[in-house]
Write a protein that binds this DNA or RNA. Structure first.
Length: 201
DNA sequence: CCAGACGTTGTT
DNA sequence: GTCTGG
DNA sequence: CCAGACGTTGTT
DNA sequence: GTCTGG
């Protein structure tokens, strides 16, 4: 599903758009992030919404004994969030995952032998936020603290059903008003209707 | 009741 | 820590 | 939660 | 039908 995101904005552009500051901007450079490498990417959390922090993709619940669970917590299904032991402790630990694009692969045949890569963006590659949840995990051996997040997914809309045609899922996209509501503990309002899909090379 | 899971959907 | 499959 | 048990205690 | 072991 949503395993690869794109951040093309500079840290100054992110600060202006999201009305928040990097404490230390040097860790961030615009890039494409692959979930399977657990990249540190820019997020804004509910408890410090004036700051852009670097959290690692792949949520680890605080109770985990090790980090193995991460490989399956890149995404969290919106429909079942409240029932899952891994996400329940994070229901009010909300975050914005800052981005301006993500990638999906359309299967061109029933077996997926041939695939077409698509980049999904808003018009003009405007910045947006994925709806996310976060948690802090302490390594019992080293005492190291790891801040991690997951991206919430929902049923694919019409466009995404065409592109992500095997799983019919898509990440929850938010624009400014919904971002505030989400961070402050309110309802999740998604703005998934303005996405555009562009075929990649 | 307890042991074992706890999660989602690709290998770009 | 809490849920669930057996 | 469900499958499987669900009972007692000699010898002539 | 209800209890209980797994």
């Amino acid at each position: 599903m949503c395993f690869r995101t794109k951040n093309s904005k500079t840290f100054n552009q992110l600060e202006d758009r999201f009305k928040a500051r990097f404490l230390t901007p040097e860790w961030y450079t615009p890039d494409v992030f692959n979930a399977f490498t657990f990249p540190v990417t820019p997020v804004i959390t509910n408890d410090r919404n004036d700051v852009i922090q670097g959290f690692s993709w792949g949520l680890i619940p605080y109770w985990a004994k090790d980090t193995n669970i991460r490989k399956s917590t890149f995404n969290a299904r919106l429909e079942t969030l409240a029932q899952k032991p891994s996400f329940k402790p994070s229901l009010l630990k909300r975050c914005l995952v800052l981005a301006d694009g993500f990638y999906e692969w359309k299967w061109l045949d029933p077996k997926g032998k041939s695939k077409q890569k698509y980049l999904l963006t808003l018009p003009e590659e405007e910045s947006f936020a994925f709806a996310g949840l976060w948690n802090s995990w302490t390594d019992r051996n080293t005492g190291e603290i790891l801040n991690t997040y997951t991206i919430i997914t929902t049923a694919a809309n019409e466009l995404m059903s065409e592109i992500h045609n095997t799983k019919k899922r898509m990440p929850v996209i938010m624009t400014p008003k919904a971002e505030k509501d989400w961070l402050s503990g309110g309802e999740l309002v998604m703005q998934n209707d303005h996405l555009e899909g562009v075929v990649c090379e």
